[in-house]
Amino acid sequence: MTTAHTAHAGEAPYYYVPPDSVHPIRASLCMLATLVGAALWVNSYAIGPWLCLIGILSLFVVLYGWFGDAIRESEGGLNSQRIDHSYRWSMTWFIFSEVMFFSAFFGSLWYTREVTTPWLSTLDTQTLLWPGFSGAWPNQGPAGTIAPFQTVGPFWLPTINTALLLSSGVTLTIAHHALRAAHRSKAIFWLALTVILGFAFVACQAYEYHHAYTELNLRFTSGAYGALFYMLTGFHGFHVILGATMLTVIWLRLVRGHFTAEHHFGFEGAAWYWHFVDVVWLGLYIFVYWL
Score class of each variant (00 low, 15 high):
A203W: 04
C204S: 11
C204H: 06
Q205T: 07
Q205E: 06
Q205M: 14
A206M: 07
A206K: 11
A206H: 10
A206V: 10
A206L: 13
A206I: 08
A206Y: 05
E208V: 03
Y209E: 00
Y209K: 07
H210S: 13
H210N: 06
H211P: 01
H211R: 12
H211A: 04
A212Q: 05
A212I: 05
A212F: 09
Y213C: 00
T214C: 00
T214F: 06
L216W: 10
N217C: 08
L218I: 06
L218E: 07
R219E: 13
F220N: 08
S222K: 01
G223H: 12
A224S: 14
A224G: 00
Y225H: 09
Y225R: 13
Y225F: 13
G226N: 11
A227H: 03
A227E: 06
L228N: 14
L228H: 03
F229Q: 02
F229P: 03
F229W: 03
M231D: 09
M231Q: 09
M231L: 15
L232N: 02
T233C: 04
F235P: 02
F235G: 04
F235Y: 12
H236Q: 03
H236K: 11
H236A: 02
H236E: 09
F238K: 00
F238A: 15
H239E: 01
H239T: 01
I241L: 10
L242Q: 11
G243E: 01
G243M: 06
G243W: 02
A244Y: 00
T245G: 12
M246K: 04
M246E: 07
M246G: 04
V249A: 10
V249Y: 04
I250T: 14
I250C: 06
I250V: 15
L252V: 14
L252D: 01
L252W: 15
R253K: 12
L254F: 07
L254K: 08
V255C: 14
V255Q: 13
V255Y: 01
G257D: 04
H258K: 11
H258T: 10
F259V: 09
F259A: 07
